[in-house]
Design a protein around this nucleic acid. Structure first.
Lengths: 348, 348
DNA sequence: TTGTATGCGTTATCAC
DNA sequence: GTGATAACGCATACAA
């Protein structure tokens, strides 16, 4: 930590359109016209205004502008994810931000950590700032409180899972289909004792993925109930659950992990047990180095780009037409075959 | 994509303090007093106000509030990173967001993609929305344009690398020391032919890391210039450069990758060449599954949490005291020994 | 083509 | 304690 001598300049009052008007020797309404590209301004006058703007370093105060304009729009939207540091969330955020910016909007972000209280607080803060709309990954049993925001004209879109107690535009992944494909892939390699590790069943995505697993397993004689473990919310819990699975007799010969945190714990467990090379494995969610693991990880990859773009699109379409019927979009997943899923069942 | 019947409710005008005042049978200034916890309000009156607030579902319009308040503060800050989807950036964002939120501030985010033009545009958008301050990972040869923002009272903090053409609070990693430690670690395993893959030398962090490499190598007889490759800006370029390195005679026996994108390309190259198990490797930047690779990746991990928190702290301290001397904070890196760095030199 | 009066929802000032 | 009035920076309506 080093201190630099520094001379801070006196913080000046920012110039307003009145300052610009005075400088240009015009009425401030004329300045406003130029700034908003309204017609009926002589090119010459326009130039004078722009010159004054440049000289004073004027920058519009869009905060003041939005308070007065008829639509009350702020050109900003809010995005609430569980954890911004999670690759799923950050990649979603990036896409939403790009989409918004192309339309002149900025994005306010917040992490709820899966806590309904945090979520509601963030919604409140966003509302206070009068965002034009919000996209959220909802948490908890009830999002009906969002009706109030909506009455004020705020657009609401759910992504990753639907909100509860409220109807709204929603974008989700094809969770069940993705897991079903994983099951079929493993069955093709001769596996029948396929285990599943999932998060809390109260979470929409977890429930859908588990359902996909159960339904797909039914075609192959059904899943062994002891081979299904849910309620795993971090890598450590997944690690323990996986270790317990492989202590069973008969032990599973293949494993499906329900999300990326579970994957991390599960692979660690297989590593500890020294059975990474002979246990078939498919992970839901792609991971940055998945193809560099040995065996390379076969994954059900969510299309976060499509998810984010669809959510953003829904939001802006809702802003354009508040009366349109609500829509639910399901985004296909991509089954990425690498090698871990092709490890054959013993004796197959 | 499914359409839901839906009946949208008519968007109502949001209630204002005047509505609340009328409802409570009071002057609106009294309402304002209650909302701002100002003294001189009878508890009884206060209750009447709060009741009316609840009944009407009133929510303060902080946009209107900030336009009028004397300090002009909006309780929002801006954050500009290169790519929000990058783990380094997203983890930084998360920390900044948490720090800001604890202080009642919201965070506007933007990705510059390393383009100075995008960066300046985002700064402009943030300025227009009158953010209280901005934290940025600067790009390009000149950030002096930020002086203008600062004159308006906006706090400016650089993170990851210093801005150019302007003095400001800055937080950077101990880049050179981190690479030097990697070199010493590899030298201890008997390596002398250590290669280095880096990004453009025009990037501050790249230059610092390369310098750290050169200086540390000097203690071991110096680096072979052919074993240093820079200007690698994505995994593909790093992949090719690594392949070329190991086609040399004599080929390096150890490799240091200058950032996470380069690491991905380099490990792929080692994989293709079938020399992952016998080439010592140290990566700058940690990766999610680094410990599950085989060999597990030895890394120089940046402390993104400390980086983000220091940046946020600088920002809020600057807001509290605009006249304080500028500070530059250097955040130590963590050398994470796993196995890839301990692979011995041939015949050692 | 340009300018004036008014109002947005809030905070600041000052009188009651 | 409470409330009227002005003001913030801008957009809207309308007059000139």
């Amino acid at each position: 930590m080093a201190a630099v001598p520094n001379p801070p300049e006196s913080p000046r009052r920012a110039p307003t359109i009145k300052d610009v008007a005075e400088r240009a020797g015009l009425g401030f309404k004329t300045v406003s016209r130029v700034l908003n590209d309204e017609p009926n301004v002589r090119p010459e006058t326009r130039d004078r205004v722009l010159a004054a703007v440049a000289e004073l370093g004027y920058r519009r105060n869009s905060i003041a502008s939005s308070i007065r304009r008829s639509d009350q729009r702020t050109s900003s939207i809010g995005l609430i994810v569980e954890d911004l540091a999670n690759p799923f969330a950050s990649s979603l955020t990036r896409v939403v931000q790009d989409y918004a910016r192309e339309r002149g909007h900025l994005v306010l972000v917040g992490s709820s950590d899966g806590d309904p209280g945090q979520e509601a607080e963030l919604v409140g803060e966003f509302g206070t700032r009068r965002v034009d709309g919000m996209i959220l990954v909802p948490n908890g049993p009830d999002q009906s409180y969002l009706e109030e925001e909506r009455r004020r004209g705020t657009a609401v879109v759910f992504v990753d899972r639907p909100g509860r107690g409220i109807e709204a535009d929603t974008v989700v992944s094809e969770n069940a289909a993705g897991v079903a494909e994983a099951v079929r892939h493993l069955a093709l390699a001769g596996h029948t004792r396929i285990a599943y590790l999932g998060d809390f069943e109260s979470i929409y995505t977890s429930a859908e993925r588990l359902q996909g697993f159960r339904d797909a397993m039914a075609a192959f004689g059904g899943a062994d109930p002891r081979h299904i473990r849910t309620g795993l919310h971090d890598p450590e819990q997944a690690h323990r659950a996986a270790a317990e699975l492989f202590a069973l007799d008969p032990a599973p010969t293949a494993l499906i992990a329900g999300n990326n945190l579970i994957t991390v714990g599960a692979v660690h467990a297989l590593q500890d047990l020294g059975i990474r090379d002979r246990t078939a494995f498919v992970a839901f969610d792609d991971l940055e180095l998945a193809d560099l693991l040995r065996p390379a990880l076969t994954v059900v990859a969510q299309d976060t780009a499509a998810l984010g773009e669809a959510a953003a699109r829904h939001l802006f379409e809702r802003l354009a037409d508040p009366a349109a019927p609500y829509r639910r979009t399901r985004v296909p997943v991509r089954f990425e075959v690498r090698s871990s899923g092709a490890i054959p069942a013993p004796g197959h």
